[in-house]
């Protein structure tokens, strides 16, 4: 029996398992550093009043950093959560519905986060 690797490579159930595995590792690696920075950010923001918090989030470097945190963790969370219904649901309808819900939730929360940071940063 001979199977051409060329044919089967990357073809799991969803046809992009390899890419999923690689992207979740890539985002996770970046998140180690982003998370450490984020913890420092929360410490700086804790107990600050309105003006201080706006100055902090509005600082270009902090704003760029937060946008990175949002983008990378949003993508990582989206990729990570998608495997959960794949593991627990046999029913194709439930699987599809929970994947749609995951996509919507991730995009909505990221859009809201992006807009909030940009609004503060641009001083609107």
């Amino acid at each position: 029996m001979k199977t051409s690797t060329k044919i089967i490579r990357g073809l799991g159930e969803t046809h992009h398992g390899t890419e999923h595995h690689w992207m979740i590792r890539l985002t996770a690696f970046a998140l180690v550093f982003l998370t450490i920075g984020f913890v420092i950010f929360v410490m700086a923001a804790a107990g600050s009043d309105y003006e201080q918090a706006r100055a902090l989030v509005g600082h270009p470097l902090v704003a760029i950093f937060l946008l990175l945190v949002i983008a990378v963790s949003g993508y990582h969370a989206y990729l990570g959560a998608i495997t959960i219904p794949e593991d627990y649901f046999q029913n194709q309808l439930y699987r599809t519905l929970s994947k749609i819900l995951n996509s919507f939730a991730a995009i909505v929360v990221c859009a809201a986060l992006f807009f909030a940071v940009l609004k503060v940063a641009f001083g609107g």
Partner: peptide, 15 residues
């Protein structure tokens, strides 16, 4: 994942 929503609440309140 849920933490992202908490963060969104805080940042939207700031905005």
């Amino acid at each position: 994942y849920i933490g992202l929503f908490f963060l969104a609440y805080w940042l939207i309140a700031l905005a």
